[in-house]
Amino acid sequence: MSWQSALACWIVRRRMRPETAKPVIDVARARAYTARRVWSPKVPPGWRLTEHYDIHAAPLRGEWLASAAPQHITILYLHGGGYYFCSPRSHRSLVFALATRTDARIFSLDYRLAPEHRFPCALDDAVAAYRRLLADGVPARSIAIAGDSAGGGLALATLLKLRDAADPLPACGVLFSPWTDLASTGASIVTNDGRDPMFHGAALARAAKVYLGDADATNPCASPLYGRFEGLPPLLIQAGDTEVLLDDSTRVAEKARGAGVTVDFEIWPKVPHGFQLFAPFMPEANRALERAARFIREATPPPQRAAAQRLPETSIV
Protein backbone atom coordinates (compact mmCIF):
# COMPACT_ATOMS: atom_id res chain seq x y z
CA MET A 1 0.00 0.00 0.00
CA SER A 2 1.51 3.30 -1.07
CA TRP A 3 1.46 6.34 1.17
CA GLN A 4 -0.62 8.05 -1.52
CA SER A 5 -3.30 5.35 -1.24
CA ALA A 6 -3.18 5.57 2.55
CA LEU A 7 -3.68 9.33 2.34
CA ALA A 8 -6.54 8.98 -0.13
CA CYS A 9 -8.26 6.44 2.13
CA TRP A 10 -7.83 8.77 5.12
CA ILE A 11 -9.32 11.71 3.24
CA VAL A 12 -12.38 9.89 1.93
CA ARG A 13 -12.98 8.24 5.33
CA ARG A 14 -13.05 11.67 6.98
CA ARG A 15 -14.89 13.63 4.32
CA MET A 16 -17.09 11.26 2.34
CA ARG A 17 -17.93 8.30 4.52
CA PRO A 18 -19.81 10.36 7.17
CA GLU A 19 -22.12 11.64 4.43
CA THR A 20 -23.11 8.07 3.56
CA ALA A 21 -24.28 7.47 7.15
CA LYS A 22 -27.04 10.07 6.87
CA PRO A 23 -30.55 8.57 6.54
CA VAL A 24 -31.53 10.82 3.62
CA ILE A 25 -29.43 11.64 0.56
CA ASP A 26 -29.07 15.35 -0.10
CA VAL A 27 -28.67 15.39 -3.87
CA ALA A 28 -28.05 19.12 -4.12
CA ARG A 29 -25.36 18.96 -1.43
CA ALA A 30 -23.61 16.06 -3.18
CA ARG A 31 -23.59 17.90 -6.49
CA ALA A 32 -22.36 21.13 -4.93
CA TYR A 33 -19.60 19.32 -3.04
CA THR A 34 -18.40 17.60 -6.19
CA ALA A 35 -18.48 20.85 -8.16
CA ARG A 36 -16.39 22.61 -5.52
CA ARG A 37 -13.86 19.80 -5.17
CA VAL A 38 -13.30 19.08 -8.84
CA TRP A 39 -9.63 19.15 -9.76
CA SER A 40 -9.36 19.59 -13.50
CA PRO A 41 -6.05 18.42 -14.93
CA LYS A 42 -4.48 20.18 -17.87
CA VAL A 43 -5.32 18.85 -21.30
CA PRO A 44 -2.36 16.66 -22.33
CA PRO A 45 0.04 18.26 -24.83
CA GLY A 46 -0.99 17.45 -28.38
CA TRP A 47 -4.57 16.64 -27.33
CA ARG A 48 -7.74 18.70 -27.61
CA LEU A 49 -10.76 18.75 -25.31
CA THR A 50 -14.06 19.57 -27.03
CA GLU A 51 -17.13 20.14 -24.89
CA HIS A 52 -20.57 19.31 -26.30
CA TYR A 53 -23.11 20.93 -24.01
CA ASP A 54 -25.44 22.43 -26.59
CA ILE A 55 -28.92 20.96 -26.12
CA HIS A 56 -28.81 19.92 -29.77
CA ALA A 57 -25.74 17.76 -29.15
CA ALA A 58 -27.79 15.01 -27.44
CA PRO A 59 -27.29 12.07 -27.21
CA LEU A 60 -23.61 12.98 -27.46
CA ARG A 61 -23.65 15.54 -24.65
CA GLY A 62 -20.34 15.48 -22.90
CA GLU A 63 -16.67 15.85 -23.72
CA TRP A 64 -14.42 14.57 -26.48
CA LEU A 65 -10.70 14.20 -25.86
CA ALA A 66 -8.65 13.40 -28.96
CA SER A 67 -5.13 13.93 -30.25
CA ALA A 68 -4.16 15.46 -33.56
CA ALA A 69 -2.73 12.15 -34.77
CA PRO A 70 -5.07 9.50 -36.24
CA GLN A 71 -6.52 7.19 -33.57
CA HIS A 72 -8.17 3.88 -34.39
CA ILE A 73 -9.59 3.28 -30.87
CA THR A 74 -12.66 5.05 -29.49
CA ILE A 75 -13.68 4.79 -25.83
CA LEU A 76 -17.19 5.62 -24.64
CA TYR A 77 -16.76 6.53 -20.96
CA LEU A 78 -19.59 6.52 -18.39
CA HIS A 79 -18.79 8.34 -15.14
CA GLY A 80 -19.78 7.20 -11.67
CA GLY A 81 -21.65 9.08 -8.97
CA GLY A 82 -24.57 6.89 -7.94
CA TYR A 83 -26.58 8.04 -10.99
CA TYR A 84 -27.37 11.33 -9.22
CA PHE A 85 -24.15 13.38 -9.15
CA CYS A 86 -20.72 13.83 -10.77
CA SER A 87 -20.10 14.60 -14.43
CA PRO A 88 -17.51 14.29 -17.20
CA ARG A 89 -15.74 17.27 -15.63
CA SER A 90 -15.39 15.49 -12.26
CA HIS A 91 -13.81 12.47 -13.94
CA ARG A 92 -11.26 14.17 -16.17
CA SER A 93 -8.26 12.88 -14.21
CA LEU A 94 -9.28 9.29 -14.95
CA VAL A 95 -10.49 9.93 -18.49
CA PHE A 96 -7.40 11.89 -19.55
CA ALA A 97 -5.09 9.25 -18.08
CA LEU A 98 -6.94 6.39 -19.76
CA ALA A 99 -7.04 8.13 -23.14
CA THR A 100 -3.34 8.96 -23.24
CA ARG A 101 -2.28 5.51 -22.06
CA THR A 102 -4.47 3.81 -24.64
CA ASP A 103 -3.80 6.37 -27.38
CA ALA A 104 -7.55 6.45 -27.92
CA ARG A 105 -9.99 9.24 -28.50
CA ILE A 106 -12.50 9.16 -25.69
CA PHE A 107 -16.02 10.50 -25.29
CA SER A 108 -17.15 11.07 -21.71
CA LEU A 109 -20.94 11.01 -21.76
CA ASP A 110 -22.98 13.49 -19.76
CA TYR A 111 -25.98 11.21 -19.27
CA ARG A 112 -29.10 12.45 -17.50
CA LEU A 113 -29.12 12.19 -13.71
CA ALA A 114 -31.68 11.15 -11.10
CA PRO A 115 -33.93 12.06 -9.44
CA GLU A 116 -34.95 14.45 -12.23
CA HIS A 117 -34.37 11.65 -14.73
CA ARG A 118 -34.78 8.24 -13.14
CA PHE A 119 -34.13 4.78 -14.54
CA PRO A 120 -33.90 4.00 -17.44
CA CYS A 121 -32.83 7.48 -18.63
CA ALA A 122 -29.12 6.91 -18.03
CA LEU A 123 -29.25 3.61 -19.92
CA ASP A 124 -31.23 5.16 -22.77
CA ASP A 125 -28.59 7.87 -23.11
CA ALA A 126 -25.68 5.42 -23.08
CA VAL A 127 -27.28 3.18 -25.70
CA ALA A 128 -28.15 6.18 -27.86
CA ALA A 129 -24.59 7.52 -27.61
CA TYR A 130 -23.13 4.19 -28.70
CA ARG A 131 -25.53 3.97 -31.62
CA ARG A 132 -24.60 7.52 -32.59
CA LEU A 133 -20.94 6.47 -32.77
CA LEU A 134 -21.90 3.62 -35.10
CA ALA A 135 -24.04 5.95 -37.20
CA ASP A 136 -21.07 8.31 -37.50
CA GLY A 137 -19.05 5.49 -39.04
CA VAL A 138 -17.04 4.30 -36.04
CA PRO A 139 -16.53 0.51 -36.36
CA ALA A 140 -17.89 -1.44 -33.41
CA ARG A 141 -14.67 -3.49 -33.26
CA SER A 142 -12.73 -0.29 -32.51
CA ILE A 143 -14.92 0.81 -29.57
CA ALA A 144 -14.48 0.07 -25.86
CA ILE A 145 -17.15 0.92 -23.29
CA ALA A 146 -15.79 1.81 -19.86
CA GLY A 147 -17.08 3.23 -16.60
CA ASP A 148 -16.57 3.42 -12.86
CA SER A 149 -18.97 2.65 -9.99
CA ALA A 150 -22.49 3.44 -11.23
CA GLY A 151 -20.92 4.10 -14.62
CA GLY A 152 -19.35 0.64 -14.53
CA GLY A 153 -22.74 -0.93 -13.91
CA LEU A 154 -24.19 1.27 -16.63
CA ALA A 155 -21.49 0.12 -19.05
CA LEU A 156 -22.39 -3.52 -18.37
CA ALA A 157 -26.13 -2.82 -18.65
CA THR A 158 -25.45 -1.09 -21.97
CA LEU A 159 -23.71 -4.20 -23.27
CA LEU A 160 -26.69 -6.35 -22.27
CA LYS A 161 -29.13 -3.95 -23.93
CA LEU A 162 -27.12 -3.79 -27.14
CA ARG A 163 -26.75 -7.57 -27.33
CA ASP A 164 -30.48 -8.12 -26.79
CA ALA A 165 -31.24 -5.60 -29.55
CA ALA A 166 -28.78 -7.37 -31.90
CA ASP A 167 -26.64 -4.26 -32.27
CA PRO A 168 -22.99 -4.76 -33.25
CA LEU A 169 -21.14 -5.08 -29.94
CA PRO A 170 -18.01 -3.14 -28.99
CA ALA A 171 -14.64 -4.85 -28.73
CA CYS A 172 -14.60 -4.93 -24.92
CA GLY A 173 -15.91 -3.54 -21.65
CA VAL A 174 -13.83 -2.06 -18.80
CA LEU A 175 -15.48 -1.87 -15.38
CA PHE A 176 -13.87 -0.02 -12.47
CA SER A 177 -15.52 -0.98 -9.13
CA PRO A 178 -18.86 -1.46 -10.90
CA TRP A 179 -22.19 -1.13 -9.08
CA THR A 180 -24.05 -4.05 -10.63
CA ASP A 181 -26.57 -5.05 -7.93
CA LEU A 182 -28.92 -2.25 -6.87
CA ALA A 183 -30.80 -4.77 -4.73
CA SER A 184 -27.77 -4.83 -2.40
CA THR A 185 -27.57 -8.59 -1.89
CA GLY A 186 -23.78 -8.98 -1.90
CA ALA A 187 -22.17 -10.33 1.26
CA SER A 188 -19.41 -7.70 1.08
CA ILE A 189 -21.97 -5.00 1.90
CA VAL A 190 -21.87 -6.46 5.41
CA THR A 191 -18.41 -8.04 5.62
CA ASN A 192 -16.63 -4.92 4.33
CA ASP A 193 -18.81 -2.44 6.18
CA GLY A 194 -16.31 -0.55 8.31
CA ARG A 195 -13.37 -1.59 6.15
CA ASP A 196 -14.53 0.47 3.18
CA PRO A 197 -13.13 3.99 3.64
CA MET A 198 -15.75 5.60 1.40
CA PHE A 199 -19.15 4.02 2.06
CA HIS A 200 -21.37 2.63 4.74
CA GLY A 201 -23.04 -0.44 3.26
CA ALA A 202 -26.56 0.83 4.05
CA ALA A 203 -25.99 3.86 1.81
CA LEU A 204 -26.26 1.76 -1.33
CA ALA A 205 -29.95 1.00 -0.93
CA ARG A 206 -30.68 4.69 -0.38
CA ALA A 207 -28.76 5.65 -3.51
CA ALA A 208 -30.51 2.95 -5.51
CA LYS A 209 -33.89 4.38 -4.51
CA VAL A 210 -32.93 7.81 -5.85
CA TYR A 211 -32.22 6.29 -9.25
CA LEU A 212 -34.87 3.58 -9.39
CA GLY A 213 -37.89 5.21 -7.80
CA ASP A 214 -40.44 2.40 -7.83
CA ALA A 215 -38.65 0.31 -10.47
CA ASP A 216 -37.56 -3.26 -9.71
CA ALA A 217 -34.01 -3.33 -8.33
CA THR A 218 -33.42 -6.73 -9.93
CA ASN A 219 -34.24 -5.55 -13.46
CA PRO A 220 -31.09 -6.43 -15.46
CA CYS A 221 -31.23 -3.05 -17.18
CA ALA A 222 -30.67 -1.44 -13.76
CA SER A 223 -28.75 -4.26 -12.05
CA PRO A 224 -26.88 -6.13 -14.79
CA LEU A 225 -25.80 -8.81 -12.32
CA TYR A 226 -29.25 -10.36 -12.88
CA GLY A 227 -28.90 -10.49 -16.66
CA ARG A 228 -27.64 -13.15 -19.06
CA PHE A 229 -24.01 -12.72 -20.07
CA GLU A 230 -23.81 -15.04 -23.06
CA GLY A 231 -22.33 -13.38 -26.13
CA LEU A 232 -20.72 -10.42 -24.38
CA PRO A 233 -17.27 -9.15 -25.44
CA PRO A 234 -14.22 -9.55 -23.16
CA LEU A 235 -14.43 -7.74 -19.83
CA LEU A 236 -11.83 -6.23 -17.53
CA ILE A 237 -13.00 -5.69 -13.94
CA GLN A 238 -10.95 -3.93 -11.27
CA ALA A 239 -12.08 -3.57 -7.64
CA GLY A 240 -10.62 -2.97 -4.19
CA ASP A 241 -10.54 -5.73 -1.57
CA THR A 242 -12.11 -3.53 1.14
CA GLU A 243 -15.03 -2.23 -0.93
CA VAL A 244 -18.61 -2.87 0.16
CA LEU A 245 -19.23 -3.28 -3.58
CA LEU A 246 -16.59 -6.01 -3.99
CA ASP A 247 -19.18 -8.75 -4.48
CA ASP A 248 -20.81 -6.72 -7.25
CA SER A 249 -17.59 -7.46 -9.14
CA THR A 250 -16.82 -11.00 -7.97
CA ARG A 251 -20.29 -12.30 -8.83
CA VAL A 252 -20.28 -10.66 -12.27
CA ALA A 253 -16.86 -12.18 -13.00
CA GLU A 254 -18.02 -15.64 -11.96
CA LYS A 255 -21.30 -15.44 -13.85
CA ALA A 256 -19.72 -14.04 -17.01
CA ARG A 257 -17.06 -16.74 -17.07
CA GLY A 258 -19.77 -19.35 -16.62
CA ALA A 259 -21.43 -17.93 -19.72
CA GLY A 260 -18.22 -18.26 -21.74
CA VAL A 261 -17.12 -14.62 -21.56
CA THR A 262 -13.40 -13.83 -21.30
CA VAL A 263 -12.92 -11.94 -18.03
CA ASP A 264 -9.81 -10.39 -16.50
CA PHE A 265 -10.62 -9.70 -12.85
CA GLU A 266 -8.21 -7.78 -10.63
CA ILE A 267 -8.58 -7.27 -6.88
CA TRP A 268 -6.42 -4.44 -5.56
CA PRO A 269 -5.54 -4.33 -1.85
CA LYS A 270 -6.22 -1.36 0.42
CA VAL A 271 -7.41 1.15 -2.15
CA PRO A 272 -10.56 3.28 -2.03
CA HIS A 273 -13.58 2.75 -4.23
CA GLY A 274 -12.93 4.11 -7.72
CA PHE A 275 -9.24 4.53 -6.94
CA GLN A 276 -8.43 5.07 -10.61
CA LEU A 277 -9.77 8.59 -10.13
CA PHE A 278 -6.67 9.38 -8.08
CA ALA A 279 -4.39 9.27 -11.13
CA PRO A 280 -1.72 10.57 -11.48
CA PHE A 281 -1.27 11.05 -7.72
CA MET A 282 -1.68 7.42 -6.66
CA PRO A 283 0.75 4.78 -8.00
CA GLU A 284 -1.92 2.07 -7.79
CA ALA A 285 -4.24 4.16 -9.96
CA ASN A 286 -1.51 4.64 -12.56
CA ARG A 287 -0.74 0.92 -12.69
CA ALA A 288 -4.41 0.00 -12.90
CA LEU A 289 -4.95 2.37 -15.81
CA GLU A 290 -1.88 1.00 -17.57
CA ARG A 291 -3.41 -2.48 -17.29
CA ALA A 292 -6.75 -1.18 -18.55
CA ALA A 293 -5.08 0.53 -21.49
CA ARG A 294 -3.22 -2.65 -22.42
CA PHE A 295 -6.47 -4.65 -22.22
CA ILE A 296 -8.23 -2.20 -24.53
CA ARG A 297 -5.36 -2.11 -27.02
CA GLU A 298 -5.28 -5.91 -27.20
CA ALA A 299 -9.05 -6.05 -27.77
CA THR A 300 -8.98 -3.37 -30.48
CA PRO A 301 -6.03 -4.12 -32.77
CA PRO A 302 -5.42 -2.03 -35.87
CA PRO A 303 -7.36 -3.31 -38.89
CA GLN A 304 -4.27 -4.82 -40.50
CA ARG A 305 -3.66 -7.36 -37.73
CA ALA A 306 -5.94 -9.79 -35.95
CA ALA A 307 -6.35 -9.85 -32.20
CA ALA A 308 -4.34 -12.53 -30.40
CA GLN A 309 -6.20 -15.16 -28.45
CA ARG A 310 -6.20 -14.27 -24.75
CA LEU A 311 -6.83 -16.33 -21.65
CA PRO A 312 -8.93 -14.99 -18.76
CA GLU A 313 -7.17 -13.90 -15.62
CA THR A 314 -7.91 -13.35 -11.97
CA SER A 315 -5.27 -11.64 -9.92
CA ILE A 316 -4.69 -10.19 -6.49
CA VAL A 317 -2.56 -7.16 -7.35
Rank of each mutant, 00 (worst) to 15 (best):
V12I: 15
A140E: 08
I316H: 14
P168L: 09
E298A: 15
A183T: 07
Q309K: 14
A288D: 01
R228H: 14
T180P: 01
D216V: 02
Y83I: 03
A259V: 01
A215W: 04
E230F: 02
F229A: 11
R61S: 15
D248I: 06
L235Q: 03
G194A: 06
A144P: 03
V190E: 15
V252M: 03
A187E: 14
L49N: 01
R105K: 15
E298L: 14
F295Y: 02
Y130Q: 10
Q71G: 03
E284H: 06
A217C: 10
G201M: 10
P234T: 09
V24S: 05
G213P: 05
Q71L: 12
R61Q: 15
A183C: 07
M16F: 14
R36A: 11
A99H: 04
A6Y: 05
E63F: 02
P233Q: 10
W47I: 05
V127H: 03
T74E: 10
V261E: 03
S188D: 08
L7E: 09
V252E: 01
A157G: 04
F107D: 04
R257A: 06
L98C: 09
P59R: 09
K270N: 14
G213R: 10
G147Y: 12
P139Y: 04
L76T: 07
R118L: 06
V27Q: 10
I296M: 14
S188E: 09
G62C: 10
A187Q: 13
E243W: 08
Y111F: 15
V43F: 02
D196H: 12
P197H: 07
L49W: 05
A307T: 07
D264P: 00
E116T: 14
I143L: 12
D214R: 08
I143P: 00
L156H: 06
S223G: 01
E313H: 09
R257H: 01
Y211R: 08
A58K: 13
G227T: 00
T158Q: 06
W47M: 11
P170Y: 10
I316G: 04
D167H: 12
R17Y: 07
A68C: 05
G194E: 06
R118M: 07
Q4G: 11
V271H: 05
V317E: 13
H52I: 01
A157T: 03
L160D: 03
P303W: 11
R13G: 09
